[in-house]
Nucleic acid binder design. Structure first.
Lengths: 346, 346
DNA sequence: CTGAAAGCGCTTACAG
DNA sequence: CTGAAAGCGCTTACAG
């Protein structure tokens, strides 16, 4: 390894112990917040630690603990904004706690998916992992984490696990709110482009749509349902199909904003005005909502908060702290200008 | 710490040494690719390591080495796609090397910016850091890294450091290519919305524009230059200004795609057709280019490759390997349908 | 080319 | 409430 030696040697637990006139074990107790410690001693040591700028070495602690202070975000989510927001939420919580965030992008369909993750977790002796969709929906992965005793927090649209390990996003609720919004505007013939069947969220958003319409006395016609791939291109293709139906839908609820942008493109090519001829609703409230015209009505998920909540649940498991109360976050419909009263009613 | 004990104890260097009938030091030499080792011994040990699935403990190695096996990506870049692509590029290179990637989002204007980074680097004894813009442009940061002997790789639009520590993106080149493209189409009155003055890339792209026009015998008129903030909203505002000038520009070169999307919005509101009344060029080739209509001509930066190159340069420093040859990557103009011959010439 | 001893900076398990 | 000994899994520095 390169690099010259540091001028001033790093402070160690021994140095602090000497300065405080106690044993290193006492310093260790301060670091680890041990309850069996005189308040006066703790404060005196804490003061010295502060003064000399001592930072316990996480590698040495990890070696002795047989657990590192690393938390991993294992993701296969193609939405960059989603991943970045989640990272930020996790950082919001762990910064200052001594833990760090390691990122692990992967492909769920890769043949070595499971064995690579296993090697990674065991090699690094990870303190825990955060799993957003769609890796959060892989059951084989959880059997693995159970088997190797690795704490984890899953984020998914519906509860799939113990509350202490789950952050539930209730996509169902957001989708039903969107559906009621469309119904209240007067839409009756509504198209739905769902996400791929392999995503739990696709089902939840679809179920939510049906529920929301049902709340308003409407029945969703499954002929107006088509499965997309959560991509822009799939949105275009699926929208073309829906717009060719008779009667033509007066509104389309897309499973995410990418596909909603595809609906815009298809509507544009068909010479249809949004929202005049067609109302559009998306899901995610991603940065794109304000860049398309008209601004897109979308269901917002508090992704950063979800990351923060997952991190808190993880720390609660790792430190045996009292479990978190909040098990879930709530989506919120943000109404913009892509939805209006359908033309026939105007 | 929670978690039950593992059923089967982990393999250690001692176990492997016993199985191979050599000392642990020999195993250590195999792990660290020491040259002074009989080929036969190395192969025999490697085979056993493979068979028993031994993975050296990075925490123990790090403790003994006084350096961790962690590389950090320190970023304050607001472009999610940029950061994700860069992460992926770094991972492409370090996966399998024993190093892991830790993420550190930050704010350059935060009062504790420098001291927090210093604490972070020292506490984790980082093997190295990767710095994309705009943290890559902070000179105080480099004095710090020098002072604490922390290896780093900087990514910037122009060379700011030793070749072994720099990945240069030559934004100048991409911008001049875009300018020549516009000139070749016949545009003479060209507007430019640059990024904020505090970004080196903003200057480089502006300089590139001037150079490219000059290559075609044109002189850029600085009255058609306005500074934006690399955001969508700033793009709208700046485009409105440019479109109010007399004569009105027939083309606008935006400093990034976000602002180009803002130009679209302003053009739309002004009733101008793209590219009929106004040609638009962006920079970044971000996912948005295909979602706006018409698809945006943009300068593509190979961000993932840049991350990979930065990681390779970092590993070269850390392991004292021969330095990388490539010092830079090249931007590429991707021509789509937002640029055409200006109306007066048709 | 290979090895025995000491140490990296912490915590655990056991005393007192 | 506090401490001395042993150990976590590696590498360094020194021998041979």
């Amino acid at each position: 390894m390169a690099g010259r030696d540091d001028e001033t040697r790093r402070m160690t637990i021994n140095d602090v112990a000497r300065l405080a006139n106690v044993s290193k074990k006492t310093i260790s107790r301060v670091i680890n917040n041990s309850p069996l410690l005189k308040q006066e001693t703790r404060e005196r040591v804490l003061k010295i630690i502060e003064e000399v700028g001592y930072q316990p070495d996480p590698q040495a602690r990890g070696l002795a603990f047989r657990r590192s202070f690393l938390i991993a975000l294992i993701y296969d989510n193609p939405n960059a904004q989603y991943v970045i927001d989640m990272q930020q939420g996790i950082i919001d919580v762990i910064r200052g706690s001594g833990f760090e965030l390691v990122v692990y992008p992967c492909h769920r369909r890769h043949p070595n998916f499971l064995s690579d993750i296993r090697k990674f977790v065991e090699r690094q002796r990870l303190a825990g992992v955060v799993l957003p969709p769609s890796v959060s929906e892989d059951e084989a992965l959880f059997k693995l984490f159970e088997a190797i005793s690795c704490p984890y927090a899953r984020i998914a649209s519906v509860s799939l696990d113990l509350p202490t390990r789950m952050v539930v996003t209730h996509d169902h609720k957001g989708a039903s709110e969107a559906a009621r919004h469309l119904a209240d505007l007067g839409h009756q013939v509504i198209g739905h482009i769902s996400g791929p069947n392999s995503f739990r969220s696709a089902h939840e958003r679809h179920r939510g749509l049906i529920q929301g319409l049902s709340d308003r006395g409407l029945t969703f016609d499954e002929r107006y349902h088509i499965e997309g791939g959560y991509t822009f291109e799939s949105g275009i293709i699926c929208a073309k199909h829906l717009l060719s139906l008779n009667p033509r839908p007066t509104a389309i609820f897309a499973g995410n904003d990418e596909m909603a942008a595809g609906v815009y493109r298809a509507a544009h090519e068909a010479g249809l005005d949004i929202p005049g001829d067609l109302s559009v609703v998306g899901f995610d409230d991603s940065p794109i909502v304000s860049k398309v015209w008209p601004p897109l009505t979308s269901v917002k998920l508090p992704i950063r908060d979800m990351g923060a909540l997952a991190a808190r649940k993880l720390l609660a498991q790792i430190t045996d702290a009292p479990p978190e109360q909040d098990i879930s976050v709530s989506p919120l419909l943000v109404v913009r200008q892509s939805t209006s009263i359908p033309a026939p009613l105007r």
